[in-house]
Nucleic acid binder design. Sequence first.
DNA 1: GCCCACCCGTAC
DNA 2: GACGTACGGGTGGGCC
Length: 894
Amino acid sequence: MTKSYPLILVDGSSYLFRAYHALPKLTNSRGEPTGALVGVLNMLRKLRDEHRPERIAVVFDAPGKTFRDDLYPKYKANRPPLPDDLREQIEPLLTVIRAMGLPLVVVPDVEADDVIGTLAMRAAEAGLDTLVSTGDKDLAQLVDERITLVNTMSDTFLDREAVKAKFGVAPERIVDLLSLTGDSVDNIPGVAGCGPKTAAKWLAAYGDLDGVIAHADEIKGKAGEGLRAALEQLPLARELTKIRCDLALDFGPDDLHPGEPDVVALRDWYTRLEARRLLETLPDDDAVANEAPQYDLVLDEADFEAWLTRLAGADLFAFDTETTSLDYMRAELVGVSFAIEPGRAAYVPLAHAYPGAPDQLGRDSVLARLKPLLEDPRRAKVGQNLKYDMSVLARYDIHLVGIAHDTMLESYVLDSTATRHDMDALAKKYLGRETISFEAVAGKGAKQLTFDQVPLETAGDYAAEDAEVTLGLHQALWPRLEAVPSLAGLYREIEMPLVPVLSRMERTGVRIDRDLLAAQSRALTKRIQALEEQAYAAAGRPFNLGSPKQIGAIFFDEKKLPVVAKTPSGAPSTSESVLERLAADGYELPSLILEHRRLAKLRSTYTDKLPQMINPATGRVHTSYHQAVAATGRLSSSDPNLQNIPIRRDEGRQIRRAFVPEPGHRLLAADYSQIELRIMAHLSGDERLLAAFAAGQDIHRATAAEILGLSPEDVTGEQRRSAKAINFGLIYGMSAFGLARQLGIERGAAQDYVDRYFARYPGVRAYMDRTRAQAHEDKYVETLFGRRLYLTDINHSNQGRRAGAERTAINAPLQGTAADVIKRAMIAVDDWIERERPPVRLIMQVHDELVFEVAEDRVDEAAEPIRQAMEGAAELAVPLLVDIGVGGDWDEAH
DNA sequence: GCCCACCCGTAC
DNA sequence: GACGTACGGGTGGGCC
């Protein structure tokens, strides 16, 4: 094609129908109809590539009545309703056309033909040649010296001469010809017995339609009779057929310059449509990725709508919230950011409030429109620590679903020993990219701003980058994860499904009896004060009982007490074991300090702190569970830490009485019995250990009996205690030296115990040897569910470092498998709760224990499903046993 | 006033 | 030196 056209007008509606009927009914693999849509897109691409027009518009009919309906109520009455599988393709088509950068024209209450006629005429007046691309013969009436028709699907051009050749009349007579022949699709009757040939003949003979009408009497035959019968309606047919070229449009040809294609959106759409040919027309991924990122600050409806459309078409999008607080229970939403492709992201500020802040889209209206997307399980989202975003959104009644990926967890599963899994660290590690720190935009210390006070320019870059980097990280991390099927399985089956469970558990929180803790604090204060006075008297001067340094000065400098042990930094230790030793030697002060430390610890860490952590809105304490902290796969808890509430000593245990249910409810505590030893039995396959668990024996008693050659009933309490220390020591990779210290016995005696243990449990020894050897070989160990823990020090030249790594190698598979098991149990139990909606809430996890708040009258029926979920969480060679207790507080539930 | 290392103690 | 995994309070020193 050599001739160039300054304006191309595309009859989009005609092509859509032609494509729908002419092309096979294709669908993509999701079952969405795509045939007509892709057909039209291919045609548009071809048209644009061949002509590279300066101006172009794709014109569609607008829904609604037109002037033709007013002229003729039966207009288009024969037309069947739009098939559903065609209707569904219209909106996506319009969206993709916009993304292609092609001006889209839909004028309310006007048909595409008339818009095209008017625009072509205006162009002609301005001296511009127009190419009208259509599949509809009616438009032949527009053809003249400046207007040419093309059917891009069949590649046929119609200029004046071609129109004459094809229809037998000049373009000026096309309206007359069509009036005579009629149009069954538009329900314009025409003349019975008169087809295009006859009509052309008549028009050639009598000049035009008026001439034909004037000479109607002269025409013979069936067609002549038809003509005479149709005379009255022919003027109306002409009115209906004639394309209007005089519409009052508020735009003209010069408003129709094509824009830059949105390659990112197009790639998503073409991918979704599975249109490979179209995908190939787009520039390479790399070319896009290497461009400077484009961050949109979305402040108006049009931009937001455009992003909504992009998100709706994306297979996966990255998502992030900006808020006023790290505390998910207090955080107010300040903005949201999105990315659908590295290099392209947007920030939608919603509630930035500082002097001179620009108007922003309303939070409620934005959230209302995001809600369907965020709650749609088929719309896949990726985020960094999405548990946080999920909890924040829940406060706005948005229940995030479709959490497909979390980059923090991808990183954690790939390497749990990495110290940090935050976005900044990951961007540096995996993308070689330095990101904007929160501190850089919000400042730090007392001058730190909340995010709503951060100016939009910097906030936008920061927030959009968060989403964009998250997507980039996912693209870097996911292939690495997929390359190791066991890790991918762990991620998919355990870590990702756990995210909503933890979010719910955190938001539920736990009720705390503030008054009880306050009373305990007062009682502790009295005792602490008394101890201080006694200590000052014993020391001969006042000092800070909380300062190991001052204690050291008094003990080892002033009173010349023996140094029992030193701290790692070389200072004389004042640890519990040291003080106990000194107390046993008859000194008074050490036991006073020990007592003081215990009480001060309880007061500062628990009885004073927990009431401060009560959320005023819920009256409950909401901890944070961290899913990417502990290298073994365990969770950790902070703010407050609910996983180290005292239990071993009675004084401390009282604090658990302050963990209470709502009125009408009970606490139910379910803990695994000896889970790590059972896992050791399973992993080692040791026959005696397996047999002991199979028989339901008290495992520490059985161990004592084996080591000492007694029958279980003859084992004393002291002997059982020693065996228990051995069992735990094994789990921690303890040496005979450590055991001796633990039990306060000679090293030789401890070694004797260890030897006898391994003689009776040879499978355990073999397992430990095997594990160590494997660790040296692989530089990592794994849990039963494939979780890996890397041991960088396993071949270290330093003996201490190497020994430490070996202990970790022994401990990690046991601790880590237990963590896997309880995580699976949590997912199962949450699934039951969400499915059956019993009056049961999961409120705490403490490594081998789950705590529930249950309606008082439903405790009995809750216990069994909980037990089944927990005991069924893994299929081991030994039974998994769960002990369940119920009470009016957490202490009582044990 | 803020930050951090250190020591110590709580849990499983 | 010697028992694994966490969190966090108080002290005390350094820094701004």
